[in-house]
Amino acid sequence: MKRHRVYFFIDGLDEFSGNQDDLVALFERDIQNVNIKVCLSSRPSCVFEDAFGSIKKLRLQDLTEKDLQNYVSDTVYAVNQARLLVSKQPWQFSNQLSSLVENAQGVFLWVELAVKDQIEGLKSGDSLERV
């Protein structure tokens, strides 16, 4: 008798619009079965961390943080208005860029859109507090 293994790769658990506890219950049953392997993906969520926190995991934001920092600083510093603000308020500007990277939680698309918005604000003459 042949044994089959089933592998599930499921992304975006945090985007599930139903009851997340029900979703957790579904996968808790599956991960107990030796013939079922499950790879789940989600942005950080207390519900999923409580349920699956002891299981092996990769945190995307830990793997991409340096790349995101480089992208943010290279892209923003290429704007003349940004360089001017850096010379006037280096600490505040550095905090602003760090906040962008942290809020992205490893998602490049999010940081790209946020950086474009920041640059538009800088080009429009917004202060750092408004950007």
Rank of each mutant, 00 (worst) to 15 (best):
S45V: 01
L26V: 12
N19K: 08
S42W: 02
L63W: 02
S99K: 15
T64M: 07
S45Y: 01
N103I: 03
Y77V: 07
S87Y: 01
L26F: 12
N80L: 06
R59H: 05
Q61K: 11
A82H: 10
S17V: 05
G53K: 02
F52S: 06
W110E: 11
F48H: 03
A25G: 02
L63D: 05
D50P: 02
A104Q: 15
N80D: 09
D62Y: 01
T75P: 06
F52D: 08
V34Q: 08
S41P: 04
L84D: 11
I55C: 12
S98F: 07
L85G: 01
P44F: 08
Q69Y: 07
K66C: 04
P44H: 06
V34G: 04
C39I: 10
F93H: 01
L60M: 13
V24F: 08
S42A: 09
S45L: 03
A25T: 04
V72E: 07
V47L: 00
Q96G: 01
D50W: 02
T64V: 15
Q89R: 06
F27V: 04
S98H: 15
Q32A: 13
T64Q: 06
S98G: 15
I55H: 06
G12Q: 12
S41A: 14
T75Q: 13
F48D: 02
A104H: 15
L100C: 14
Q81S: 05
W91C: 00
L58Y: 09
L60N: 07
K56R: 10
S87F: 00
V79S: 06
N103V: 06
T75A: 11
Y71M: 08
K88R: 13
R83N: 05
Y77H: 10
V72W: 07
C46Q: 10
K56N: 11
L97H: 11
N19S: 11
Q92I: 03
R43F: 12
K88Y: 12
R59P: 00
N95I: 01
E28R: 14
N70C: 11
G18K: 02
G53D: 04
C46T: 07
K66T: 15
S45H: 04
S87R: 09
S87A: 12
S73I: 14
C46Y: 07
E28I: 03
V101Y: 06
V79E: 09
A82D: 08
L23M: 12
V47F: 01
C39M: 10
D62P: 03
